[in-house]
């Protein structure tokens, strides 16, 4: 029962945060909305016994990623909502219809059974402790773990290429 209550509360928090993100005029509020949704999801992970994921969710997402977002919002300034002008009603209608139909389609698809996979290979009472995750991560997934070095290198190099150099480094600027 306690779990049901916890789930109910944080599901509402997550949805409220998401909707806040969606409707807030000011991007800072959007960021805060997303942040609360992420915290709510971290709680969900704990409910699902995924402790490491919950922890990383808080550290990486709520901590690093959202900080980066807020930082960029501060950097480029919160723009004036009026600058965007009124949004055509048709756009709102289309958006809500699309989102609604999408949700309905998924729910409809899952209405029979949400999880049909076989549990033959599973562990009966899975506990996502650091140890269990590490066994998997540094066992089967080692090579994948190593391959993320490419992703991170690209992120670093790409950011440098886009933002770090001054225009004078280019041939076209020098010419």
């Amino acid at each position: 029962m306690a779990e049901a209550v916890t789930f109910g509360i944080f599901a509402i928090v997550a949805l409220a945060g998401a909707v806040t993100m969606l409707v807030a005029k000011n991007p800072v509020y959007s960021a805060v909305g997303l942040l609360s949704a992420m915290f709510a999801l971290a709680v969900m992970y704990i409910l699902l016994d995924a402790h490491l994921v919950a922890m990383v969710q808080v550290i990486i997402y709520a901590g690093a990623v959202m900080t980066l977002f807020l930082f960029v919002i501060m950097l480029i300034g919160v723009d004036n909502p009026n600058a965007y002008g009124p949004r055509p009603v048709s756009q709102s209608i289309v958006t809500w219809v699309v989102a609604g139909v999408f949700f309905a389609a998924i729910v409809l698809a899952g209405s029979g059974a949400w999880v049909t996979g076989s549990a033959a290979f599973g562990t009966a009472d899975l506990n996502g402790t650091i140890e269990n995750v590490a066994d998997e991560m540094f066992g089967t997934w080692t090579i994948v773990f190593l391959s993320t070095v490419m992703l991170l290198t690209i992120a670093a190099v790409g950011t440098i290429a886009l933002a770090y150099f001054t225009g004078a480094d280019d041939d076209e600027a020098a010419a």
């Binding site: 389609a105 998924i106 409809l108 698809a109 899952g110 209405s111 029979g112 059974a113 949400w114 999880v115 049909t116």
Partner: peptide
Amino acid sequence: VAEPGILLA
């Protein structure tokens, strides 16, 4: 698969 909905989606 008896209920292929999620699979298809």
